[in-house]
Design a protein around this nucleic acid. Structure first.
Lengths: 157, 157
DNA sequence: GAAATGAAGGTCAAGGAAAGACAAAGGCAA
DNA sequence: TTGCCTTTGTCTTTCCTTGACCTTCATTTC
């Protein structure tokens, strides 16, 4: 049986398609339309439109707030797999290996390679160990998404 | 939905562009045009045309008063200063302001801009507040260093 | 020329609007 | 039962908008 979350997912999906990969929603409004708690919308977004599933989420609070979803298509299967392989924790050496591979295989330019290395280095992430690997995983995935999203957008124009 | 502040920002932006980097406005008049409180104009200016975003603000009170906005171009030497201005803690909005400026003024390509935005976003740095701003400062400085180091090398060759 | 007056802009706090975080409760399938 | 998903509710954070009061400056008045 389709749950409410499924219905909301389908609705947002249509919005994204209509917007050619970009949808802007207002949480409160959507919640009213589906007669549910606003946090239900948050739940759908975090469980169905996460970075792992290839979406970038931007938002703003306060008056005139919004949530913007941007779909990222990783045209290459390997990239897609890499994104899903990176779990909740990522060590420095794993991150460096991934980056090395992306750079060597020509998926990534040198500047981005160096920037991402710096961002995932132990020196930048001065945290104790379970936390450090968790933040590194988040940062890594967010950067990768952003990088390939931008590549897509600038290739379009 | 664009808030009033967004509309006022866009309006002032056009004024600055039309004036080739300089705009002179009267707070009361602008407020009347947008049917809002004069302090709303002050809010827009302080939140959108801050020094971090590269603006100098001059003003005079009393009869014939005005507010003058001057867009300042970023020089190479300023980068060093930016690095040192970023202390041990950096909020998301401060980071975004810096990046916006670097991108707008052509110091940074769009991909790096988006990648660095992603890496310093609240979404990626899922930590409690004093920690989050501290890690953001570290990550930001590390990435900036890496970027300009690489940029210099590729420019030399 | 000094004092009064009015016309600006500056500051700050309060209130409201909207999204985020998180925990608790509910449902359903194995 | 147990362990996931869902769903809701509460509290927090961020951002916008307004209003009251303060400071500065030019102009008028004496």
């Amino acid at each position: 049986m389709a749950s409410l979350a499924d219905l909301i997912e389908a609705y947002i999906q249509r919005l994204v398609e209509a917007g050619e990969g970009v949808a802007e929603i207002q949480r409160t409004l959507l919640a009213e339309r589906f007669r549910c708690a606003p946090s239900q919308i948050s739940y759908v977004i975090s469980s169905r439109f996460s970075p792992e599933r290839g979406y970038i989420i931007e938002s703003r609070r306060g008056g005139g707030g919004y949530i913007r979803l941007i779909r990222v298509e990783l045209e290459d299967e390997d990239l897609q797999e890499m994104m899903s392989q990176v779990g909740s924790y990522l060590s420095q050496s794993e991150a460096y290996d991934y980056l090395e591979r992306l750079f060597d295989e020509g998926f990534m330019d040198e500047k981005t390679f160096q920037v991402m290395r710096a961002a995932t280095s132990r020196k930048a992430l001065t945290l104790v160990l379970p936390d450090r690997d968790m933040i590194r995983a988040n940062v890594f995935k967010a950067m990768l998404n952003a990088y390939f999203a931008t590549r897509q957008r600038s290739e379009e124009s």
